[in-house]
């Protein structure tokens, strides 16, 4: 039994890292722009499908991955200019509806290009599972966990140690004051969407070897990422990671000890519980301002 619990814990952490990556992109974009981008999961799906197609076309894996991340980053920037920027003075609800529209459109586009087939990528590292504390851990899980840690470190470095990061923080803290010192919130928003596109694509590529990639996998990823972000407090970067890992572990234990059919329902139950008991999330603060 303890071995099984350990195994479920590691499976949960892998799953949680995936949710954490999506939640990180969601929270960062939300903090910077005030837009809750519900098309975030689609960035992961398209990034993953693009990388698979490029790799299948004979392009070396590293080049294919970088190219896919760059293309999805550009897609993020393009969508921001085409759909978010023109509606920048609209209400938060309108912007959410726009992102839902984007999500549906991107899914439709993916269906047209890749069809309903299932795709996969080979694992980044060859060889069997690693054994940690009696649990078998897929090496790809370490890659996913590593990407989550790397992303968190990069975000911390950017926001705390770079001038550009402080300028972005300033735009979040006080939009009017930021404009008065010469920071253009429109440019900040554009780069935030580029970044969220890149991060989403990277997440999609890293999870492709352990999950079956389909045109519509972004929907569920987006939902789980959103739940993870809400658990963490929606505005907290650290909270997004904690929320993602927690949701992943809970889902894993639910699937292993209760029923795998309840796995997806659990996310909604957790979401409702958090909103009822602690609406500000685990690490969030009530009443924070967004731009």
């Amino acid at each position: 039994m303890p071995d099984q619990l350990m195994q479920l814990l590691f499976s949960g952490l892998t799953l949680g890292s995936i949710y954490a990556l999506i939640a990180l992109a969601l929270v960062t974009t939300f903090n910077i722009t005030g837009v809750l981008n519900l098309a975030q999961g689609e960035f992961a799906a398209i990034g993953s499908l693009l990388a698979i197609s490029l790799y299948a076309a004979g392009i070396p894996s590293t080049v294919a991955f970088i190219l896919s991340i760059a293309l999805v980053a550009m897609l993020g920037g393009l969508l921001e200019r085409a759909a978010i920027y023109p509606a920048r003075r609209a209400s938060g609800l309108t912007l959410i509806i726009i992102t839902i529209g984007l999500s549906i459109s991107l899914r439709g586009l993916a269906l047209l290009i890749w069809g309903t087939e299932t795709y996969s990528l080979p694992a980044f590292t060859k060889g069997g599972p690693l054994f940690i504390g009696g649990a078998a851990v897929n090496p790809q899980s370490i890659w996913i966990l590593g990407l989550a840690i790397l992303t968190l470190s990069l975000l911390y470095t950017f926001f705390e140690l770079t001038y550009a990061g402080k300028a972005v923080k300033a735009a979040v803290v006080n939009r009017t004051a930021a404009r008065l010192v010469g920071i253009n919130p429109g440019t900040v928003s554009f780069w935030a969407f580029m970044g969220s596109g890149a991060l989403g694509a990277a997440a999609g590529i890293f999870i492709a070897p352990v999950t079956m990639t389909t045109y519509d996998m972004g929907f569920m990823l987006g939902v789980k990422g959103f739940v993870a972000a809400v658990i963490g407090g929606l505005s907290s970067v650290g909270g997004a990671v904690v929320g993602g890992l927690l949701l992943g572990v809970l889902e894993s234990y639910c699937a292993g000890l209760v029923s795998s059919g309840l796995k997806d329902a659990l996310a909604v139950i957790v979401l409702l519980a958090v909103l009822l008991v602690r609406p500000q999330g685990l690490l969030g603060v009530l009443g924070e301002r967004k731009i």
Partner: peptide, 30 residues
């Protein structure tokens, strides 16, 4: 506003509009 500041016009607004959660030095440098 972001163009006006490039033309050499700076406003100190009535409500000060400082970046409250950033340090004094960060406010100045920004």
């Amino acid at each position: 506003p972001e163009k006006m500041v490039r033309r050499g016009i700076s406003l100190v607004p009535e409500r000060r509009e400082i970046f409250g959660s950033l340090s004094v030095l960060d406010n100045l440098v920004l």
